[in-house]
Write a protein that binds this DNA or RNA. Structure first.
Length: 130
DNA sequence: TTTCTCACA
DNA sequence: TGTGAGAA
């Protein structure tokens, strides 16, 4: 649909919605809040990279952790700026363990962390693309 | 199918 | 913070 670069995989909002378990509106809403910054196709369709997927999952965790948009912007700004601080990870790894697939995720997979999710998503992408 | 804006809670 | 409706 929106594979512009053959090197890197890009996803439309439809697949991102399926991957993240978020609704299309939530994803667009996060973009509006500048939590994510997907590129656009010639037809103005949003195109998300794996970095965007990870960011959206991060947003999910942060929101679930009790953060508001402003707080998430700070967290995302940090990781986007440079590598994460060990002290900051202290709280991140705690929520990282048990969030992800808590209540949303309609028909996803029995994953328990993002890393595992990303692997599954990669397989799914190849499967769909094929 | 995805996009946007307006409006509601 | 997130969604519904309407229009394109």
């Amino acid at each position: 649909m929106a594979d512009i670069d053959p090197r890197i995989p890009v996803y439309s909002i439809g697949v991102v919605k399926d991957m993240t378990g978020l609704t299309g509106r939530q994803i667009r809403y996060y973009e509006k809040m500048e939590l994510v910054k997907p590129a656009r196709t010639k037809g103005n369709q949003r195109i998300y990279s794996q970095k965007d997927i990870e960011r959206l999952n991060k947003v999910k965790e942060l929101l679930d952790a009790g953060l508001n948009i402003a707080g998430i912007q700070e967290q995302l700004g940090k990781i986007s700026n440079k590598n994460e601080k060990k002290e900051e990870l202290n709280s991140s790894e705690i929520i990282d363990d048990v969030k992800v697939s808590k209540k949303k995720l309609t028909s996803l997979y029995p994953v328990s962390n993002r890393a595992e999710l990303m692997e599954l998503l990669s397989e799914k992408k190849e499967n769909k693309d094929d």
